[in-house]
Nucleic acid binder design. Sequence first.
DNA 1: CAGTGAGCGAGCTTCCGCTTGACTT
Length: 781
Amino acid sequence: MKKNLLIVESPAKAKTIEKILGEEFEVKSCYGHIRDLEKNDMGIDIGNQFEPRYIVPEDKEKVVKELKSLAKKSGEVWLATDEDREGEAISWHLCEVLGLDPSTTKRIVFHEITKPAIRAAVESPRVLDMNLVNAQQARRILDRIVGFELSPVLWRKMSMRNNLSAGRVQSVAVRLIAEREREINAFNSVSTFKTEALFAAQDISNKPVTFKAEGSRFTTADDAVSFLQTCIGAKYTVKDIQVKPARKSPAAPFTTSTLQQEASRKLGYSVSRTMLLAQKLYENGDISYMRTDSVNLSETAINDISSKIKSQFGGTYLQVRKFKNKNESAQEAHEAIRPTAMERLNVDDADCRKLYELIWKRTMASQMADAELEKTIAKINISTNNEHLTAQGEVLKFEGFLKVYREDRDEEDINEEETTEGMLPPLEVNQELIFKEMKAIERFSRPAPRFTEASLVKKLEELGIGRPSTYAPTISTILKRGYVEKRDKEGTKRDYRIMLLKADNITRLKEQETTGAEKAKLFPTDLGLVVTDFLKQHFDDIMDYGFTASIEEEFDEVAQGKLTWNKMLKDFYTPFKQDVDNTIETAERIKGERELGTDPATGKPVVARMGRYGPMVQIGSTEDDEKPRFAKLKATQSIETISLEEAMDLFRLPRTIGTFEDMDVTVSIGKFGPYIAHDKKFYSLSKEFDPYTITLEQAVPIIIEKRKAKEERTIRVFEKEKIQVLRGPYGPYLKQGLRNYKLSKEQQERAADITLEEALKTIEEIKANPPQKKARKKKGS
DNA sequence: CAGTGAGCGAGCTTCCGCTTGACTT
């Protein structure tokens, strides 16, 4: 009997399933989508009911060919792609390409790669759900329309660069970052004065300890001082003690988004690094599938985890839990991310180990008992006024899941008020306390922090925008387009006031703190801000945070057969296309201009705006007789925040800072950043030097150093032919003019002896037979 | 390789969501 062919999406999955199914089935993978819309003319016949034109992309031709020939040879073809909208569509495309009848071809689904789940699936095949397929087609076509109509609008209206893009997901992601930045810029920090007292006491073993109690907050320094004055000479008595039990529960097992968040907080990984390592672990069979929005664990997995918890910590630590997805947009085609075998505590690959451990711990904790705490709150009376102080303590009574795992929190979720920490010494009601000191400390309110990659993913997921497979690529896209930058920001120093009451005396102190320092955060560029403003102004509905959620509702209606996909698209397209046409016709070019003031020297206006080559400042206007002066903004400056003073500073380049070897040394900023020019040669400046302040004394050693480095790199020179043998990071190589040529291993070893003849011959050979670059993707034809 | 900044218009770019590899100027 011929074997049946079962097709799944992922090759790693195919291997596992083949083992489970045995003789009857050959299991193959189609590597995701096998067809896509043609790129020419959008790939859609808009006038003809939005009829899509599908093609097999070049990089999928091989897979499709193989599947076709296998399908011919096999018995029956079974489709086992993921059970969600995209998976259903992949199965339909397979039918179309392999010539299968969608109304009879066997379609099976499972949410976990376990023997019982797959056996059960094979027992009850169904056929394709064409409504679900149509919902996917509607999703695909709408995204194509939005992307391929909006992007060209930007090309027309922006004078800068020509690979700009816009889309349902990326443009909203940029908007989130842009708006957060403006919130931060507009934030007015307000300070309040937080009071706290220190008392001396003895702990259980009679050791002297101090503990803290908090009082009211005051809005002004005077109020705080007045309060401290009323406390002079006071007695402090415990008025009331409350002891309350409390519990903490573990977080759900990982989804793609929560894994990215925790790997970012605990390990400092970027979203793409996390996915790369997770992919390795998955391909190695160490973890379940890593692109998932489900928090569900299979029965098989729960049994495995349970027995591991029992053997390692004992039965009191076990608490089997079923987690539910909060998120409505979740499609739950897979399990949560978990180790495939809990007995494996670690993996060999050093790069993957930390991530694996994180997944292992989170998975264990999710099925462990609550942690039990005891919270103590003591209220303390002040004899000289009506205020009171509060001391809080917390004791862990039973560790529960905290034995293995504690979830980190985002900056923005950390509430400054929560200061419960440590234990309180034993206290009794009516006990008089030994007062040491009381402080009123100035504290400033803080704006919301900038997004990290991971906190952006969290926000997108909350809004139902994007999918587990696209979070990492979306971030790459907005970075690549230059809408957003990932960087650190140095903090600034700030004074804060402290009023100290000690030994019946009040003293005023001043201390310094650093504020606003950020690491690996997402900042919008001027380009991102300007494009966001433009899109919001003209395509408000697409930029709305609720847009995806609302069209998802319509896709659901299509999936339920209550709405036809063509009608849905028509209702969307008619007003959208009008907006597009309107915008092309009437909207002004995007400039993002901001007036900064007038140039003190000439009285001419100074503006900051987007130019052809990026953000810049300009003195005078192009209509003047005299040509305006231009200067590029520094990387950390923005059109929105640059001051007139900072702008005028930019016109200080190029500077001549002195002479060396009888020739001028000048400093400027060029295409490749700041540089020193001397004797018609250029020397790039490293970050530690500021071109605006660098001195001749600093510049000369740089010139000498670079000359020396160049000499050391040079192995041989054939002056007349302009050929050099140079030492590079990958060993010796040839350079003629501006082009580099590789030397063979054998040639590298005797680089110093290479003759002019041999060099010329090598270059000729390489020119005649250029090294194969990776084949460029051809456009859909 | 180290400057540009008007408007015109060749010919180019672009979306989101499934999936993995093949590269080291």
